[in-house]
Amino acid sequence: MSSDQEAHGLDKDRLSWMFKQMVRIREFEERVKNTFEEHPGAIRGHTHLADGAEASIVGSLATLRGGDQVLATYRCHGYPLALGSDANAMMAEIYGKKTGICGGYGGSMHLVDVDRGFLGTSGIVGAGIPHATGAAWAAQIRKQGQVVLCFFGDGASKQGAFAESLNIASLWKLPIVFVMENNSYNVVTRVEQEDANAAAGEPLAIKAKAFSMPGVTIDGGDPIEVHGVVGAAVERARSGEGPTLVESKVYRLSAHGNIIAPPGIPLHYPEHEAIAVFGAPEEYEAALRGDPVPRFRARLIGEGTISAEEADEIAATVRQEMQAAVDFAWESQLPDAAEALNHVYA
């Protein structure tokens, strides 16, 4: 274990826990992806996977303490898993079942688990950023030292909601950390096709300057680095010094989402855009070689934090957990049709 890790309070148990969460997210996403063959038709609509972003998600969330809150995007399976939500209920939600975490009302894009501080997600790019900013305002008013983590993608930084929210967060010194997961793709558009900074070869964290806010770019594939930088930003936010923009560079290892097709056409995950759209398989292969999950496993084993056997044991436990989640989701009942109007008004 390096002194860097110790400095951030990352002892053996914590590192092992982080690794396990990354494996849980990966396994969950693999099972979701596999569903299109295993249980064709069970998942309707659109799913978006977090594979490739596990280190960024877990490294960020590991900096939080009880009472902190998280808001994210429609690519939202990873966060609640790491926050402790029940994988069974999450999978059941994606299957549209009554036992789902939102009773089948939300689906893959709208997971919510208030008890664990996961306040919700928007399916609209950038729309969640002001929501998180508002939650941070609430935290500032409560004065209980709560911090809000706000996750969004690089595409969202071109939305007006991004600029408006970061300006206000900076002006009001809100206790929030904006974590931009830059995966270089906005569906099938590459970031340099739609972002003036990316086109100029600049990091997107430079945008923070417009709001008089610190901005930092990190390797989102390294959970220790993520933990260190996001942790410092969280502490800054907690002490009332205001927000930080963290650009966490990740590579999404699956396509943007499953194909969009009318009912009757089987859904599946297409090839990644790097190959399918841009004809750049070497880019994708390089990303696979940098896959954060095996990378972190190798590091932990190499540094003697855990043994290969322990790592395998974690993977085996997680496989069982996610198999149980799929079974639970598959066997659960669909909601009664008449329940559709249950939540029109609170």
Binding site: Q69, A127, P130, G134, A138, A139, Q140, I141, A161, W172
Partner: peptide, 26 residues
């Protein structure tokens, strides 16, 4: 000033923040 605040001309953020503050119990 915690509960009463002037905002910039940023309607998306104003209303979006209201949603977030409401989600957070206000």
């Amino acid at each position: 000033g915690d509960r009463v605040r002037l905002t910039p001309i940023s309607e998306t953020a104003e209303i979006g923040m209201a949603v977030g503050a409401a989600l957070a119990g206000l």
